[in-house]
Design a protein around this nucleic acid. Sequence first.
RNA 1: GGCCCCAUCGUCUAGUGGUUAGGACGCCAGGUUUUCAUCCUGGUAACAGGAGUUCGAUUCUCCUUGGGGCUACCA
Length: 493
Amino acid sequence: MSRTRFAPSPTGMLHVGGLRTALFNYLYAKKNEGTFILRIEDTDRERYEEGTEENILKTLDWAKLNPDEGVTLEGEKGDKKPYHQSERLDVYKKAIDKLLESKNAYYAFDTTEELNRMREEEKKAGNPAPKYDISMRMRMKNSLTLSEEEVKNKIDAGDEYVIRLKVPDNHTVKVFDEIRGALEFKSSSIDDAVLLKSDGFPTYHLANIVDDNAMDIDMVIRGEEWLPSLPKHVLLYEAFGWNMPKFAHVPLLLNPSGGKLSKRQGDVSVSDFIERGYLPEVMINFLALLGWNPGTTDEIFSLDELIEKFSLDRVQKGGAIFDTEKLDWLQGQWIRKFTPKEFAERIQPIVAKEFPDARKDSKFVEKAQLIQDRITFFKEASEMLSFFYLDPKVDLELIASKKQKVTKDMVADIVSMLIETLEKISTWNEETIKESIIKLAKEKELKNGQVLWPLRAILTGLPYSPGAFEVAEVLGKDETLKRLAKALELVKK
RNA sequence: GGCCCCAUCGUCUAGUGGUUAGGACGCCAGGUUUUCAUCCUGGUAACAGGAGUUCGAUUCUCCUUGGGGCUACCA
């Protein structure tokens, strides 16, 4: 049993990196017959974006990574409510009081302007990385430099304040990361982070630790960008006297040019990929392989298979460039994996949108079969099946083909021969059609392509399409001959 | 700048002291008795550099270099 959580902020659409973090958390939980929890970290009122929480939930639902507990599309589930941090302010207040009491935190009354000025001064004085601790703590206005009475007076007077973590001096924080191993941080490099903002909201550091503890999270899987603040979190757990969960910092997803994944260099929000027609199975499969591998050469995995194979010790340490070259290939693999019936069912509504006849087409499965190996996106299906639902244009430029050695003045003869030959076929199927046409070509001393190209071009009206034999079979004898006859007439003119 | 993380083909990766350094995507060539696609076969291409440890380093250690992250009253 294990409890993991995905804890996004509603500050933007869910992006692929976030989905991967969610996936790893989901896989870990399921692998250990545990619980996957979704918590919304909405403590930043400035960056809050309307609708993004819904986008996150819907995207997770699309990917079939629905949380077992926490915030869901059906509302909050579980006995650790609420799961929105903005509704847990009293919980943080209590926690802060505890830290204040144990002197692990202190009040600070400095304004942003004062802080900025002091940092400038420090830099000029040769301190490259001014931190509130060490260099600034004693120079600023806070409960470490002010008397108890002064502090009380300021608070009573309504002065704004934040509460900061008191990082102990001369201390080494030791912590273990499931992916990176043992880590050490000197406390001199850790800043006295703000825990409670002047608006009464907690920062990530506080809220995150308090909630992970309250929600019994025992494995924290999050992005590598959190690694530098890990010692602060460890210090908080120590200050509270709580048991620490295990930590696993997964490598970042990178732009093609190397930096942290961002817009500008292409699509990064999952919604973009959904819109472009990628299947959830494909996205999940692709994301799983970015930073993780099964240790075998297998590459196609369903969510269930991933649950079975997943383990943190096969997660990569280095960042992975989010390069979608392989995504299209994967999509093709998945499309080809569907049974003919499944495939037909999935494209039928899409084709029917353009060609209503497709909806009640008894031969739809056969038609769909012709293109299952030829498409990467379902939306390509309509065009590729168009010739079944409308009369193809007869285009002499297309029917004659230099490459196939078919000149324009040969076309009429070839079409006549085709009609004559095909009319004689009594059992109409791919095999018999093929047989008689190959025989025809041989008799007339023509190359197969000289007969087949015109046939396919007339039947489909397209430069690229499924093969002539299979199209003719599905079209049926009558329709095939009808199209040939019509073409012959037009070509003669 | 400081702190932290990382480093195998262009990309995703296998490898855990001795391998012709393997696979996949992409690309190139050929084949699959019509096009496109699929599929098959073959090819292209990598251990960042330098010391050290060792009989022997891609693998262990250190340094350099390179890349990335963090450095907010954002997460």
